[in-house]
Design a binder for these strands. Structure first.
Lengths: 114, 114
DNA sequence: ACGTCATATAACGTCAACCGTACTATCCGG
DNA sequence: CCGGATAGTACGGTTGACGTTATATGACGT
């Protein structure tokens, strides 16, 4: 699962949102790092709905414009939880390996050995 | 950055490895979840070397077979550290949002409000 | 009145990256 | 002699994200 997809699921985890609301939420959640483009968002939304991770909650017509609200399904929630867990383990593994990084000019032994 | 790429950098963080060694290391680091295929590995290796995140440390000929050892550069190490940090924040955001998840049959108020 | 921005979705085409598979080659064990 | 582990190369396919453009309306400024 890619970052944009992960962040869309994250945005929908707390409450149902429509497309544009997801874009705003993702900006907040990613601390401004990720600004979804329409092409990325609606493509991902279609894929996620097909996979059953999200579903259309309702369609609202506000001032002539259609608002389609998406909701995370139970499958989507558990997929997101699994993925979050995976990310934490990957980050921990990387940080552990970096700690073992060979220090230049330091005779190297097995890690953790004095 | 994708998962295979991240795991390759992780594998190289502790010490230089050759292609096949990276495959083995990634299996261990990912607890058996990720088994790199040659196409994925060598493609990623070329890309990472081009970006300056890894470099060839040395080439060894062992019993007629070439072994190319790759090493993480300083740039690569900081890119990996940055990415690990990002993963931890993404995981934390997802878990926080999931905690706010609307419980069906529970009148919902602002999160954290009694 | 007109332009522009924010809201809101759809529909392109493109590209990077990963994936599977097959191929080459050597050494070892059965 | 064959299969499996080791080690790397080559190639084609698919997915998913990306950028851009089009469409539509309301609000705001000039």
């Amino acid at each position: 699962m890619q970052e944009p997809t992960f962040l869309i699921l994250t945005a929908l985890a707390a409450q149902p949102l429509h497309g544009y609301g997801i874009i705003q939420s993702v900006i907040t959640l990613s601390e401004g790092e990720v600004k979804l483009r329409p092409g990325t968002l609606y493509g991902a939304l279609d894929r996620l709905a097909e996979q059953g991770l999200i579903e259309v909650e309702r369609e609202e017509a506000v001032e002539g414009r259609l608002r389609r609200y998406y909701r995370l399904t139970d499958d989507g929630a558990s997929a997101l939880a699994t993925e979050a867990e995976r990310l934490r383990r990957r980050a921990a593994a990387a940080e552990a390996q970096l700690k073992d990084r060979a220090v230049p000019g330091f005779g190297h032994r097995a890690p953790g050995v004095a």
